[in-house]
């Protein structure tokens, strides 16, 4: 089992690495295309601002690589948002893997959404043995619009896609690495896909 975490400079990847370590899997941080292609599973992380993260991804030379990967790929938080068509944050064009738009929450609610919210309408092997309305930890100001590729939804101001799936690509808005035992179970499910 070879697991790579795409290392393009965006985000707190230590926590993801540690979470897999708790599951007994050594995750390798990598920006080497050959190493990433040769992995069984790939994590595409991301924290921070979308346009600067996308800039870093382009500079790392991995921008073209990600959409061509054939093994299961899991985008987390901003990673998931960058896999969508477009995000309002910094008016940034995404990788177009998920056919949806990323928009900002309005000021009717506190922004960022910070804390534990439920995930519902679960529709993927990624959520095997995860109960409907399980709590996950989220921190975000932008959300992916609900669409055909939604495999989980959450409610904050409106119902949005808190997880997406298209072929071998998966994305989660929440942080499974910070969501207690249920989050660890989702990471375990991903490894076993």
């Amino acid at each position: 089992m070879k697991l790579s975490i795409v290392n393009y400079g965006a985000g707190n990847i230590k926590s993801i690495q540690f979470a897999f370590k708790r599951l007994g899997v050594e995750a390798v941080l990598s920006n080497n295309p050959d190493e990433i292609i040769a992995s069984d599973k790939v994590i595409f992380p991301g924290v921070g601002e979308a346009s600067s993260a996308m800039k870093m991804l382009k500079e790392s030379g991995l921008y073209q690589l990600i959409p061509t990967l054939k093994q299961p790929v899991l985008g987390i938080c901003l990673g998931m948002q960058l896999m969508c068509n477009h995000t309002e944050e910094g008016d940034t064009k995404g990788l177009g893997i998920f056919n949806t738009e990323v928009k900002r929450f309005s000021n009717k609610v506190k922004v960022p959404q910070m804390g534990w919210n439920t995930i519902s309408n679960l529709k993927s092997d990624l959520f095997k043995d995860i109960k409907d309305n399980e709590f996950m930890y989220l921190v975000h100001s932008y959300y992916a619009e609900n669409c055909d590729e939604s495999i989980a939804t959450s409610n904050y101001e409106l119902e949005y896609a808190s997880a997406l799936e298209n072929d071998n690509f998966y994305g989660v808005q929440f942080h499974p690495e910070k969501s207690g035992k249920a989050g660890e179970k989702i990471l375990k499910n991903f490894i076993e896909l």
Binding site: Y137, K178, K181
Partner: peptide
């Protein structure tokens, strides 16, 4: 901080 991050699964 390293040890906490390694062992604790909440933020």
């Amino acid at each position: 901080v390293l040890k906490v991050a390694e062992q604790v699964n909440i933020p």
